[in-house]
């Protein structure tokens, strides 16, 4: 976290440049940041709400419910997927860089986070479409971002470090992400899970950030603040493990270059 502050200028530059590069690469540029998650939300909304009929999946209005979680999930999956190749891709820089090695992990994290923030107008569109204005608990939204950031930083360091030793990890992560999508309350609400297995579901560290994003609209989705507690502790533990793994493998990482 200290790195983040101390090297904020370099990071800002790298992140701005990466975004710029992405937005100049495609004709529609920034619009893709909106179209991609919006399109996905509409497809899923159509399937689960229209085709399958009004079942007890998620909370209403479903389009809004979906897009509020799809956007952060998109951030999560995009960021984590890039982590396994981060040191391999930055060989040239690693060889000469006198800056801390975790900078490259932070860069991906921040670029994908900026994309997430830039895609927030999707939620505004959904709010307008569904005419469902959030309550005062929407102030917890930034807290969700912070929590997800810590979680992704830890997980990113962990994956990035071990991917150097085990190249196969990239594939494993891909499968794990798919499984995680269905195991995480994105399409559905945590209250859809039968009561007797719900405690296990809250062991998923993504539950808390997603809950914090949604709490402005659906304040009673979570009955207990214990969920947040468990999830917060988990995020911190993952961060600790990630940092430890990264420090342990740093000599090996530098050999990649």
């Amino acid at each position: 976290m200290l790195t983040l502050w101390r090297h904020r200028q370099v990071l800002r530059m790298l992140v701005l440049r990466d975004l710029q590069r992405q937005y100049t690469k495609f004709r529609l540029g920034y619009l893709w940041t909106i179209i991609e998650p919006l399109g996905m939300s509409i497809v899923l909304w159509f399937v689960f709400s229209m085709l399958l009929g009004p079942r007890k999946l998620g909370l209403q209005p479903y389009l809004l419910f979906l897009s509020v979680a799809i956007l952060p999930w998109w951030w999560f999956t995009k960021g984590i997927a890039q982590m396994s190749g981060v040191f391999r891709k930055n060989k040239g820089e690693l060889r000469i860089s006198l800056l801390p090695t975790e900078l490259w992990v932070l860069r991906i994290l921040l670029v994908t986070m900026m994309e997430f923030i830039l895609s927030l107008p999707v939620i505004i569109v959904a709010v307008i479409l569904t005419r469902d204005v959030p309550g005062p608990l929407i102030v917890l939204f930034p807290l969700g971002i912070a929590l997800q950031f810590v979680l992704m930083y830890g997980l990113g360091l962990l994956i990035a470090s071990y991917a150097v030793v085990i190249p196969d990890l990239a594939r494993i992560v891909r499968i794990a992400m798919r499984a995680l999508f269905y195991l995480t309350p994105v399409l559905y609400s945590i209250t859809n899970i039968p009561e007797h297995i719900r405690p296990y579901a809250t062991l998923n560290p993504l539950v808390a950030p997603l809950g914090l994003y949604r709490v402005g609209w659906w304040p009673d989705e979570h009955e207990s603040y214990l969920h947040y507690g468990i999830s917060l502790v988990l995020c911190l533990v993952i961060f600790g493990v990630g940092w430890w793994a990264f420090k342990r493998h740093e000599p090996r990482i530098l050999k990649e270059a």
Partner: peptide
């Protein structure tokens, strides 16, 4: 040579 696309994100 790895120009592989291992880290392309997919939603589902």
């Amino acid at each position: 040579d790895d120009d592989d696309d291992d880290d392309d994100a997919e939603l589902i």
